[in-house]
């Protein structure tokens, strides 16, 4: 079964080599190289960049990432359930609904606390 994934590995390898070859080899041979400070500055939507790029982000971003992970884990549990569903019957459906309902409590809590609103 792992042998089927040899194709995945092959595609991965070809994809990486393609990018490396075009950017590092082919493009280096073709492109003219005339850098100046204006060109080398960081692109910031056409504006002059101000300050460093490493600023302190708001905690809200972290909260969104956390909520994302919780529901990604939920989705991971949904996959094997969905694949085995036609053999499991009604009881498995109830079980999954309980699972989702418990997590919906969390979503409702987050919603009520205003964690999903951007201020």
């Amino acid at each position: 079964m792992a042998a089927d994934y040899a194709y995945v590995g092959l595609f991965l390898l070809v994809g990486i080599l393609f990018v490396v070859f075009t950017i590092e080899v082919l493009s280096r041979l073709l492109r003219p190289s005339r850098p100046n400070p204006e060109k080398l500055s960081t692109y910031e939507c056409g504006e002059r960049p101000i300050g460093g790029s490493w600023i302190q982000f708001h905690v809200r971003y972290y909260l969104y990432a956390l909520v994302y992970i919780v529901f990604a884990v939920e989705t991971v549990f949904l996959f094997p359930w969905a694949v085995a569903f036609h053999r499991l019957g009604f009881f498995a459906f109830i079980e999954m609904m309980i699972f989702i309902a418990i997590l919906l409590v969390g979503l409702a809590y987050a919603w009520k606390k205003g964690a999903l609103e951007w201020v």
């Binding site: 909260l63 956390l66 909520v67 919780v70 884990v73 939920e74 549990f77 079980e95 309980i98 699972f99 989702i100 418990i102 997590l103 409590v105 969390g106 979503l107 809590y109 987050a110 606390k113 964690a115």
Partner: peptide, 16 residues
């Protein structure tokens, strides 16, 4: 499996 959902709920509420 069901305990896992409670754990996820606890993680979510704790983070909030």
């Amino acid at each position: 499996f069901e305990v896992a959902s409670v754990l996820l709920l606890a993680a979510l509420v704790g983070a909030l």
